[in-house]
């Protein structure tokens, strides 16, 4: 079983976590679209620390000795998913920026040609 002190620590951690997340969301420093995974991971940790018996199935299935280890494994998995989504977002933005830069260069040339006609 998870020790009471660990469960309390996780709960406090999650409260702080949600406090920061919601503050950033309210100040519009985070876009909700990209924050859903963070909110979902936090919710999962909250449920698991309140009802640690939900971990029993996973610990038995994977042969993990300690519930806390199963919890950390899940947390690690969530982090990996979030990182992957970040890489995917960066790749998409990279492509968008590249197209913008190219489009700007083509436009700049047209503007330059139009302006030099007036000379």
């Amino acid at each position: 079983m998870l020790s009471t002190s660990l469960r309390v620590a996780i709960l406090i951690g999650i409260i702080v976590y949600y406090f920061i997340l919601i503050m950033l969301l309210r100040q519009k420093r985070l876009t909700l679209k990209y924050t859903l995974l963070w909110l979902f991971s936090g919710l999962m940790m909250l449920i698991l620390s309140v009802f640690p018996q939900l971990l029993n199935g996973i610990t038995r299935l994977l042969g993990i000795q300690l519930q806390s280890n199963a919890l950390f494994a899940i947390l690690f998995f969530c982090t990996m998913i979030i990182l992957m989504s970040l890489t995917s977002i960066i790749s998409k933005q990279n492509e968008a920026i590249k197209q913008l830069v190219q489009y700007t260069a083509l436009l700049e040339k047209r503007v330059r040609e139009i302006e030099s006609c007036g000379d």
Partner: peptide, 16 residues
């Protein structure tokens, strides 16, 4: 000439 406002590297340049 075309002038890119940011450095894209050879691939992005040639594609332009």
């Amino acid at each position: 000439y075309l002038s890119l406002p940011c450095n894209l590297g050879i691939g992005g340049g040639v594609q332009t």
